[in-house]
């Protein structure tokens, strides 16, 4: 695993966790997306462990010496679509919340008590 990717993943994970714990729902939603991006980057770097060159086949049908793993790139494409969908849904729900409860402060949206 690439050192740069490892450090970037760690920083993004920390940022995401910090943001997701904030009271402002919009900032929390952004933290949610940063967290997903961190995990996607982690997944990508998992495939780059034995090479950082794009996995293309040249005209003679030969691959370059150490191509990175193409499967994880297909996988994170799916993961990005899912995370983007969840993020869009989350922002939509927050928009409705701000209209219905007139606030996006998660401490004031606490009507669920049983």
């Amino acid at each position: 695993m690439n050192t740069l990717f490892a450090i970037a993943t760690g920083i993004m994970f920390g940022m995401g966790i910090f943001q997701i714990l904030r009271r402002d729902l919009i900032k929390a939603a952004m933290g949610f997306y940063i967290l997903f991006a961190a995990v996607n980057l982690l997944f990508l770097s998992v495939g780059a462990y034995d090479g950082l060159i794009a996995p293309y086949v040249d005209a003679a049908g030969q691959t370059s010496a150490q191509p990175s793993d193409p499967l994880v790139q297909a996988l994170i494409l799916t993961a990005i679509v899912i995370s983007f969908g969840s993020y869009a849904l989350l922002l939509g729900l927050i928009a409705v919340t701000s209209r219905r409860f007139r606030t996006v402060d998660s401490d004031e949206v606490d009507h669920l008590k049983g």
Partner: peptide
């Protein structure tokens, strides 16, 4: 009407779980 609040709560928690 409170379904919205529960949905946001669950989406956050379940999203982190999915991570």
């Amino acid at each position: 009407r409170l379904g919205l609040e529960a949905a946001i709560k669950y989406l956050f928690i379940s999203g982190v779980g999915s991570l």
